[in-house]
Amino acid sequence: MASLSPSLKKNVLRHESLLLLVLLLEFAFLCLYARNFGTPDNLSNVVRHSAEIGLLALAMMPVILTGGIDLSVGSLMGLCAVLFGVLTHDYHLATLPAAAVTLAAGLFAGGFNAFLITALRLPPLIVTLGTYSLFRGLAEAITQGTKTYRAFDPAFLSLGETRWFGVPLQAWILTAAAASFYLLVHRSTFGRSFRAIGFSPEGARYAGLSVQSRTALPYLLTGLVAALAALLFTARLRQARADAGTGYELCAITAVVLGGTSIFGGVGTLPGTLAGIAAIAVLTNGIGRVPAVFKAGIGGELASLLTGALLLVALAGPELARVLSTRSAKISPSPKTL
């Protein structure tokens, strides 16, 4: 927080405290009305099922903070899952080396995005839109679109169920990742550079920051994290298929933006992203357990409907309030930061 300017701090914190309030209300409502929502078992499930998207969102946050975007993470998850399947099944690699190669491949794929974006100065949206198709296409080509890998080492598959001190492994991983990304974004010079680049790449360059390498780093991390998510996903579902992680990139972006990070870069906090992840995860799990009377005849789609509505309200609310107050008070608009 110390790295935020006061005027922004006010806005961001307002947004984040609002989100926290929504999250609490959501939670309270679901505990009261949803079947078995508040049980320890179910809460573990919430974490287990949202771990992959949560990880992707954590990694996505610094990317968006630099003013970029990575649409390829979901597809890369699919590619990494398939790669892991091929390595263990067709090349008979043991789990650990196979996992290591998969992580390296994720890093490499992230590096490919980073290279195109920083060295060739192509827009991140276009580059990762390209690799979004490319990675998924590769995964499908390897499996011919049909093959599913199932015969994994039981020790690996048990990871999906493992608990330490009664808490699912995914929760530990998510916590460790959140702490690491928090330190990166809020406590290191890297995070400071991300923010500066997000506000003004030219301004950062004139300040002598190494804009290229600092812009590249978040994409390397999304690549690595996508590979990690692919491994967790494979262990949890006990199978690896080319369609792993389909649509996850959008969920991750939604969580980040819902968490108060500006899509234009510069503004945002990691705790906000965590709140965004939690809001979506809780909603997705809880809504299925709510009695029909609350659902107005809409079935499972209600979760995505509400997520969308929440996002739009969260984004439009402060803007609307600002526009209205400007209209009535005739205050000059706040300095353009986005």
Binding site: A196, F199, G203, T337
Partner: peptide, 10 residues
Amino acid sequence: RRHGVILPMP
């Protein structure tokens, strides 16, 4: 304003 100072930052 574009190069000398990053305006939104402290």
